[in-house]
Design a protein around this nucleic acid. Structure first.
Length: 514
RNA sequence: GGGAGCGUAGCUCAAUUGGCAGAGCAAUGGACUCUUAAUCCAUAGGUUGUGGGUUCGAUUCCCUCCGCUCUCACCA
């Protein structure tokens, strides 16, 4: 790709020569100023019931602009298909109608942008088509498109078979992927609709959308390793944020008692089909709500989102059929573990040694070391991930997370070893994480202290002690519940995408070698 | 970071035990004023990801490096 073959250069030169000929004929190959007044898809939609006769009786003139995605020329006439953001329409150009302009058209290649003014008619095969009365070359493309575009039903099959398939090139040159693959376009339209839906949903409930800093001087709000960066004039080392959580709760202290942010987080962790170093999170906080209120809200939001984005609350995802209709399963974490690990009794929940012994069963190598250093709550979390998470396909709320792995969540009133928290698991992966917020500054201070101690023990994914956040809590955070939802992962579900890279326009890749 | 796999023309893909690297589409020239993957005739297009090795001979076998994919670990 980096090195250009002889053939590719030859194609380039040919097109450059055509551009020069456009100039000689008085057209700027990269000109400006043509203003289309109509959209291809809308013309076809609005005139679907027009017949040969009605179009002859009442002539209709339209102007459109777009990329040439099909080119079927004869000597003195041609059919082309031009595509704009709304769809594509066929255009018929004839030498006897266009005169000298037809010479400009003959220099067009697949992929060029043109402007057309024409009268709508139906061809012999019944296709709505514009008969061009004006032709304007707009932009000359110097590189050939990656394959042949196709439009008809039969052509679709051909296009799919010959479309750009090399994953690396698709991600590196996403614009070509979008041009060549209609399903890729559809995926990103759906992702956009998902985000749009969420904004409307929350706006309608009185939430305020805000933006909080992406560059932090402390690591907080989640358990992850951060990226580091640096501000030159302040000579200040900073972290790219791993979560916006503590800033959003400061806003609740300030009186914005329903806020949300949809924005990027950055985590310096491994890359996989489910992880990109930068990813989009929705986080929202609602005062005077509990985590149980958020369970209801989440069900409502995602059921409606599925309907809005995928057209149904029944979603096909890979081999699974996911039911997003209301009434999802709820299960406390410990209960879920006991269902899968019969050797554990209810008493073992407090028995760190027993938990560790069970967690270590069948584990060899370096993984053991991590488990051996874990405390009670961390071991319960590990058991959950090992025995339960992969078994959850349908939307499931897992509740009652151990306090040790929930440093920002409120303790349960009946059992302080667990928190008022849930995670939503769908198709074996975490989609949402929510809890009643810990608003007791004294408890929060102790939790931060535990995190700092854990860092001292060598755990890398811990939070820093945020004194200003404690001060904010001391000024009073009303009883509040908050939630984070991974937008990329939700988009994966709603678009049946197996990899997170299929729902991120430009996923992180290594730079190419020279 | 560990493991497995992949990389051939602009695009999609072939190539027998290791024996002259091919096809369709795109491109170029020609015919063609209702095509729909337009059709027909002709032509051109390659350092087989990179560097090395084995061999009379390497797309094929071995090694290095680069990139991608899947997977494990870390995480969401």
């Amino acid at each position: 790709m980096a090195e250009e073959g002889v053939k590719e250069l030859e194609l380039f030169e040919q097109r450059l020569a055509s551009a020069q000929k456009w100039r000689e004929l008085g057209a700027n190959p990269w000109g400006n100023g043509f203003r289309p007044e109509h959209l291809a898809g809308e013309i076809l939609f609005a005139n679907a019931d027009q017949t040969v006769e009605t179009l002859e009786a009442t002539p209709k003139i339209f102007s459109v602009a777009g990329r040439i995605v099909a080119l079927r020329p004869f000597k003195n006439a041609a059919f082309i298909v031009i595509q704009d953001r709304s769809g594509a329409i066929q255009v018929h150009l004839k030498q006897d109608k266009l005169g000298d302009r037809y010479e400009l058209f003959k220099l067009c290649d697949l992929g060029d942008f043109v402007g057309i003014v024409g009268q709508l008619f139906r061809t012999r095969t019944g296709e709505l088509t514009l008969a061009a009365t004006r032709f304007e070359p707009l932009t000359k493309t110097l590189r050939a498109p990656p394959g042949k575009f196709a439009k008809s039903e039969a052509g679709q099959e051909f296009a799919e078979k010959n479309a750009m398939a090399d994953t690396e090139q698709r991600y590196r040159q996403r614009y070509l992927d979008l041009l060549a693959n209609a399903d890729v376009r559809a995926t990103f339209v759906k992702r956009s609709k998902l985000v749009q839906f969420i904004r409307r949903f929350l706006d309608a409930r009185g939430y305020l959308e805000v933006e909080t800093p992406m560059m932090h001087s402390l690591v907080s709000g989640a358990a992850a390793r951060p990226f580091r960066t640096h501000h030159n004039t302040l000579n200040l080392d900073l972290y790219m944020r791993i979560a916006p959580e503590l800033h959003l709760k400061r806003l609740v202290v300030g009186g914005f008692d329903r806020v949300y942010e949809i924005n990027r987080n950055f985590r310096n962790e491994g890359i996989s089909t489910r992880h990109n170093p930068e990813f989009t999170m929705l986080e929202f906080y609602e005062a005077y709500a509990t985590y149980e209120d958020l369970i209801a809200l989440t069900e409502e939001m995602l059921a409606e989102a599925a309907q809005a984005v995928a057209g149904s609350t029944t979603i096909k995802y890979g081999e699974h059929t996911l039911q997003f209709g209301r009434g999802w399963k709820r299960i406390p974490m410990w209960e879920a573990i006991r269902e899968k690990v019969p050797s554990l009794t209810d008493k073992d929940r407090a028995d760190t040694d027993k938990l560790r012994a069970v967690a270590l069963e069948g584990v060899h190598g370096p993984e053991r070391k991590g488990l051996e250093g874990m405390n009670r709550g961390e071991l319960i979390g590990a058991l959950f991930e090992k025995h339960v998470e992969d078994t959850l396909i349908q939307p499931t709320f897992v509740t009652h997370f151990p306090t040790e792995i929930s440093p920002l969540a409120r303790r349960n009133d009946d059992d302080p070893t667990v928190t008022d928290r849930f995670e939503l698991i769908v198709a074996q992966r975490e989609i949402a994480n929510a809890f009643s917020e810990l608003n007791d500054p004294i408890d929060q201070k102790g939790r931060f202290q535990s995190q700092v101690e854990a860092k001292g023990r060598g755990q890398e994914e811990t939070m820093d002690f945020d004194e200003d956040y404690i001060r904010a809590l001391e000024h009073g955070l009303p009883p509040t519940a908050g939630e984070g939802i991974g937008i990329d992962r939700l988009a994966m579900l709603f678009t049946d995408s197996p990899s997170i890279r299929d729902v991120i326009l430009f996923p992180l890749l290594k730079p190419q070698a020279k």
